[in-house]
Design a protein around this nucleic acid. Structure first.
Lengths: 197, 197
DNA sequence: AAAAAAACCTTCCGGATGGCTTTTTTTAGA
DNA sequence: TCTAAAAAAAGCCATCCGGAAGGTTTTTTT
């Protein structure tokens, strides 16, 4: 982007602010109540302004998913690195899954289940994201058994489990209990994995 | 209301039919699009009739949850019983989690995350359901380690994992792959469990 | 440096649908 | 026949998403 862009920069800032408002709204009131109206208001824009940046609701949602997925790949600082598989998996829960951003993503994915158009719109991006996650796990972990496929499976299973935990926090399971479940899972899975390099 | 029997039965049938329409709608178009209008139409009633049976949407949803939870406890026929832990867990996936009914339930629970009123309305029932599930697992399984607490944890973790699987089917994970994940988990957890009796 | 074009934003309107309430009609038991 | 529940119909109010019209600011062109 060579120089030419005071307005473009402004526009990008606006878009990002709008997406962040959308994320907050998704976390606070869920997908259905996340109306363009609400997003525009909380982002401090008029309805028309939002429409200018995102012609339709689907466009806003897609951009928000972009933003959310980008966040999952934020580089970790060096001292965040642990040498321990268990630590690393617990970190995945605390820093990756059990977060507002992931909840927002779940709201959108939940809506996409029955919104075919949205599903189609998001599909390729989500698939690419999945592949990237798989590659990331291959880079960081190796299986004690030596089977590379197993590594990917175990990590995906871990993510599935954690997603599932996220959905049960509503009915009578305390935070501590949830944490115990996470530890137990890690305890079961960690012995099968090693950190690379 | 003297003799009150014939009409009550009819009323109950109507309520059940409406709940079933609601379940279908939840599966087909999700919670947000499951309007009273839609449910009334697909159930073959007028809007007013539905209104008569369920004064508000929350009442309909609560009744639908009743219906859904009741279904999870349908008695199994004798020949459905397997003597094998792995078989039993796979059955839990196929007959319990990976079903339209469970998806409908997930839709409602997803909506309840941000709908405080609904959440309050459903809370006690869901907690009781959880306890009943725990008791059921205590009755059917025992831990190789002998720790009863561990049995409950492992089964709840299994359910969490399966719930998580349910939510990932949208982005690039095939049915076969999902099935492989289930088998892999069962393989990991089954050695820790025994069937009782 | 002035004019034209594009981007940005605001304010308003329209069709549609949401849940809910009220009123009227139908049904069925006593 | 009479009465009360059940069902249907009609209307109400709010909100949703999309879009049009108009004005201002920035960028590009001349």
């Amino acid at each position: 982007m060579p120089e030419a862009g005071v307005q473009q920069a402004k526009s990008q800032r606006a878009r990002k602010a709008i997406c962040e408002a959308a994320i907050d709204s998704l976390v606070d009131v869920g997908y259905a109540e996340t109306s363009l109206n609400r997003v525009a208001t909380t982002a401090g824009f008029s309805k028309g302004a939002l429409q200018h940046h995102f012609p339709g609701k689907e466009d806003l949602v897609a951009a928000t998913v972009d933003e959310l997925l980008a966040r999952t790949f934020r580089p970790r600082s060096e001292r965040d690195r642990s040498t321990d598989v268990e630590q690393e998996l617990l970190r995945a829960w605390n820093r990756f899954i059990n977060t507002p951003a992931y909840r927002a993503l779940m709201e959108i994915l939940g809506a996409a289940r029955t919104d075919k158009a949205l599903q189609k719109r998001l599909s390729s991006e989500l698939v690419a994201w999945g592949r990237r996650l798989d590659q990331q796990t291959r880079d960081h972990y190796e299986a004690v058994s030596g089977d590379e496929e197993e590594v990917v499976m175990l990590l995906n299973m871990t993510r599935s489990f954690m997603r599932g935990l996220l959905t049960q926090e509503r009915y009578g399971v305390s935070r501590e209990e949830t944490a115990r479940y996470v530890r137990k899972w890690v305890e079961l899975v960690a012995p099968l994995l090693r950190l690379k390099g």
